[in-house]
């Protein structure tokens, strides 16, 4: 199997789906001539032409709405936000239009479209460019929200998102674009709504998603050196969430750490913990601990930024704590 980057995996997904269905088009800032702000769309303009790889003005609200309108009349837009921070200007189209159209039209207008782009913090980009919006978006009925953490999942989930007849949010990671992994060259999808047990252990579950999957895997490696074996449950999709996968793991290990990139209050982890307390109450040997971003806007200074982010050390500390080792 070929080893390629997360960025190349997304590029393959776009290329394959645009080749498969001529209703699919890519629209956003710098997706064409510039080959993508993060080069995800590299080569696509040349291959598919300017009607299907559309450079837009800097006008998030406008082009998100163009996607909504095109989806209403049968095209299958992939709308790229250069980052999800900028998508706040377009949130009316995501929340009030894309997510609501099917319901408020009594089922007449499905919205087969994708909104995608990098989400969350990179390095020292400070407050306005380092935010994780997964819990905001997962809050909205009418949307599906996927958060691929590996190249394999990036390709499979983006392809599934493009084929889905609902609006799907694809949250990528700027820090993931260069990560590598095995990706099949043949056509495959990763079903939306299915978690994956990325690593098997018996002592504690780490339930996580997106960019934090790598952190959890590293933590699992470190903990293994001390003889602690953890389950790493990668949710992959945060709406709809694979509750069964969470329950199965926690009922086996009896302990859980929930690791997420975003802020604590009303975060994805809060929802995971709710499922755990409802379904695994009698199985728990310790309170569940959450690892998340500090409850502050992201600071610029390197040291402060490190303090603010969830990371390997914080995750290891949390696992040791739920195991009553520290």
């Amino acid at each position: 199997m070929a080893i390629i980057t997360y960025r190349e995996a997304l590029n393959q997904a776009l290329r394959e789906e645009m080749g498969r269905d001529d209703r699919v088009f890519l629209m956003g800032e710098e997706v064409g001539v510039y080959n993508g702000a993060y080069k995800v769309s590299k080569g696509l303009l040349e291959e598919f032409g300017e009607m299907r790889v559309v450079d837009t003005p800097i006008t998030e609200l406008g082009f998100a709405g163009v996607g909504v309108g095109a989806a209403m009349v049968g095209l299958r837009p992939v709308i790229e936000f250069m980052t999800w921070n900028f998508a706040l200007l377009a949130i009316d189209q995501v929340v009030n239009a894309a997510a609501k159209m099917l319901y408020m039209s009594g089922g007449q207008y499905p919205m087969p479209m994708v909104f995608r782009g990098p989400n969350g913090a990179a390095l020292q980009l400070s407050a306005q460019h380092s935010q994780d919006f997964e819990s905001w978006l997962a809050h909205i009925p009418g949307l599906k929200v996927v958060t691929p953490g590996t190249p394999y999942d990036a390709k499979g989930l983006l392809k599934a998102a493009i084929r889905d007849d609902n609006p799907v949010i694809v949250l990528e990671g700027e820090m993931l674009y260069n990560t590598k992994g095995e990706v099949p060259e043949h056509d495959y999808i990763v079903p939306i709504g299915e978690a994956e047990l990325k690593r098997e252990g018996s002592d504690c579950s780490i339930i996580t998603n997106g960019k934090m999957v790598l952190v959890a895997m590293n933590a699992a490696d470190q903990l293994a050196k001390d003889g602690i074996r953890v389950d790493v449950v990668d949710l992959r999709t945060v709406r709809p969430m694979d509750v069964e996968a969470i329950i199965t793991s926690v009922q086996k290990t009896n302990r859980a750490v929930v690791l997420e990139e975003g802020w604590e209050i009303a975060g994805i982890g809060a929802q995971v913990v709710d499922y755990i307390q409802r379904e695994c109450f009698d199985h728990l040997d310790a309170p569940v601990i959450r690892v998340h971003q500090a409850d502050v806007p992201m600071p610029y200074a390197k040291g402060l930024e490190k303090l603010a982010k969830p990371d390997l050390q914080k995750t290891i500390a949390a696992v040791r704590k739920v195991m009553y080792l520290d």
């Binding site: 088009f25 709405g65 163009v66 909504v68 309108g69 009349v73 189209q93 159209m101 039209s105």
Partner: peptide, 23 residues
């Protein structure tokens, strides 16, 4: 294609329908 409740919100949607016609 509907009545829409957010003042201004449906105008870009109309541009999208125009885009699809041209597409």
């Amino acid at each position: 294609l509907g009545g829409h409740g957010i003042v201004g919100g449906h105008v870009p949607v109309a541009a999208g329908v125009g885009f699809a016609i041209k597409y």
